[in-house]
Design a protein around this nucleic acid. Structure first.
Lengths: 203, 203
DNA sequence: AACAATCTTGACTGGATGGTCAACTCTGGT
DNA sequence: ACCAGAGTTGACCATCCAGTCAAGATTGTT
């Protein structure tokens, strides 16, 4: 039998179930607004059972956040200095749209943290994220200097991509209420955003 | 003596102080995450004193939200069908940037509500806001049909304006942590956003 | 000054909530 | 079948928190 993951089969299964349920609850109500009872109910377990697998509510939250951060910056990291500038940035937009579609809860969990002033992930933002953003900003500036894309502030460009893509996950409730049909808002969004950034980036 | 506002001088003063303090607290921690004690401390009053001026924590929150909604849609309402299409939309962007600068707490309070699924303001969104958005969407579509601006989905245009402008208020903490200098991020943002929408709207 | 109305607060209550524990059940290996 | 360890939970505790209340302090009016 493989020794890949720690814990028994049941441990692995229940920890996964709890994290899934906690993500749903935390992403909607924030840390303080969520209760262990809610998480337990969502997971289909009893409260003491949830606390058998995690030391505390705080520990569940921290696990979720830590797991999240890695996947959160992966799309930005994949921007290839050797690729075509416009295509690389548009591909990044596509990856971010995809993340809003596939991981809306994760997006809201992140948004909740930032809204509160980012106390739990300040280290990540000032460290790993800032290093990466600075690096990609230099790259974009170099691309602009070579005349292959419109010359714009790379930080504001990155913030614009974040704002526009994450908005469709974070403000999903509002967007749905403002639509007549019940089509997926993100379907039209991808085309709209690609058009927007194509125009913005054209030299 | 004027009878403009209800209550005594002290009542008006303290209600204002409490609402100001509550806005600060609620906008950071959300409704469930905030305590009356926090609000009282921020206001420099005792907890029972806060509850002397408002029936409940819920009542404070509701007052804030109701006060907010009116000012929140005013900038959109001001778009003038008789004006120049591009200038009208750019002026709307400018007003929204101004709101993020002047009322960041209000923006975060709103964002918190939407993140939670907008349970308290669903009526407002489906009613007053939707009516207004639909009206302005028709206007923008007519403008596009007349060839005076780029032909794009008016709903996605409006969502883009909201996403980009509110991002600077809602994600302020992150943006500050990613900057080296300590200049006001919104200074550069306004120029960036106006450039972005000028390019997007060009026919 | 005197009085009534308004304002303020320390001490309290009841319910919610995070976390514990002892007793119980289930699982897998022999 | 048996057993040791893993998994589960009802009952419980301590703390936090919204809201109450009665008693005292302040204010405005005469």
């Amino acid at each position: 039998m493989s020794e890949m993951l720690p814990g028994t089969r049941i441990q692995r299964k229940n920890r996964r179930i709890i994290l899934r349920a906690a993500l749903e609850v935390f992403s909607r109500h924030g840390f303080r607004g969520s209760t262990v009872d809610q998480i337990a109910a969502e997971a289909g377990l009893s409260k003491p059972n949830v606390l058998y697998y995690f030391d505390s509510k705080e520990a569940i939250h921290e696990t979720l956040l830590t797991d999240l951060l890695g996947t959160w910056i992966a799309p930005l990291r994949e921007i290839d200095p050797a690729g075509d500038p416009q295509e690389e940035i548009l591909a990044y937009v596509r990856r971010k749209v995809q993340m809003s579609r596939d991981f809306p809860c994760e997006s809201r969990l992140f948004a909740n943290e930032i809204l509160q002033g980012a106390p739990r992930i300040e280290g990540f933002i000032r460290g790993e994220l800032k290093t990466l953003v600075d690096e990609k900003a230099r790259l974009i500036r170099a691309w602009a200097a070579s005349g292959r894309i419109n010359d714009l502030d790379p930080y504001h460009l990155i913030f614009s991509i974040w704002a526009l893509t994450q908005h469709y996950a974070d403000f999903d409730a509002q967007i749905r209420m403002l639509r007549d049909d019940d089509s997926e808002p993100l379907d039209g969004a991808e085309a709209h955003l690609l058009m927007l950034f194509r125009r913005l980036l054209a030299p």
